[in-house]
């Protein structure tokens, strides 16, 4: 048993050392990150809502795009952050990677939900239906299911280390499957609806529209990073509270 106990003890040491450094570093970064993301969002929203022209075909509804497209982009970004953190957690057993994957999931799911809702709101005036079984929509919906399954697995397994390992396996299998699902959905749609309902990639986007879109995308990305840090800090604190409770219970049982 002795070769088993030694690495786990050093691991625990490493686990204790790293989050502490992370807490001080992230504590210093948090305020500037909030400032930058809010700044980008405010300026981006001003350009998106007031200082950009309406589309010559879609009119004012085109402004939904400035929320919709960055959300959809971050939905994918969130899943890739989750998958990469899971890979790091499985390979290097880095304790922060588990927390990163766990914290990224609800944020990514929220952006995916936002993309779906804004998509539906945009779809009603444009195509006359809240929901269309288009390849893009369907694959984003399935991505949302993957997020929900991942979060459900975390809550279903009580012991954190076990849950972390199982969830990491799920995230990686999902990451392998996302391109396959996406491809199959595109194939399915093109087989059954030869005349596409709509085309996102119509004319190339005008520069006046590209500026607010880029600003919003930057703002959303910074917001994602900020929220990720906040959630990771909360997870670390929750872990500490759990440790303290366990220690308290153990000392109470002894005394």
């Amino acid at each position: 048993m002795s070769p088993m106990t030694r690495p786990s003890a050093s691991q625990r040491l490493q686990a204790f050392a790293n989050p502490a450094r992370f807490m001080t570093l992230s504590g210093r970064l948090l305020a500037p990150l909030w400032l930058v993301s809010l700044g980008f969002l405010v300026v981006g929203l001003y350009f998106a809502l007031f200082a950009s022209p309406p589309d010559y075909q879609q009119g004012e509804t085109v402004r939904i795009m400035y929320v919709h497209v960055p959300s959809a982009w971050l939905a994918m970004f969130g899943y890739s952050v989750m998958a990469m953190a899971s890979a790091v957690a499985l390979i290097f057993r880095h304790p922060l990677a588990d927390l990163c994957a766990k914290s990224a999931a609800p944020i990514g799911a929220a952006f995916t939900f936002l993309a779906l809702v804004t998509g539906a709101l945009w779809g009603k005036p444009m195509w006359g239906a809240w929901w269309v079984w288009d390849a893009r929509l369907t694959s984003v919906l399935i991505l949302f299911f993957l997020y929900l399954g991942y979060m459900a697995l975390w809550t279903a397994i009580e012991e954190p280390t076990r849950a972390a390992r199982a969830a990491a396996v799920l995230a990686l299998v999902g990451a392998i499957n996302v391109p396959i699902i996406r491809y199959s959905v595109v194939w399915w749609n093109t087989l059954h609806q030869p005349a596409s309902v709509f085309r996102m990639d119509g004319p190339t986007i005008a520069p006046e529209m590209l500026l607010p879109l880029a600003l919003m995308a930057l703002g959303f990305t910074f917001l994602f990073v900020t929220l990720l840090l906040v959630r990771m800090r909360a997870e670390i604190l929750r872990h500490r509270v759990r440790q303290l409770r366990l220690a308290l219970a153990a000392s109470g049982a002894e005394g």
């Binding site: 299911f145 697995l153 799920l170 499957n177 396959i180 699902i181 491809y183 199959s184 959905v185």
Partner: peptide, 20 residues
Amino acid sequence: LLASLLVLPFYIPVLIFGVG
């Protein structure tokens, strides 16, 4: 129930190509 929720998204390509 959880297993079904986790696995169903992975089944979608099989369903699509099988029905196809």
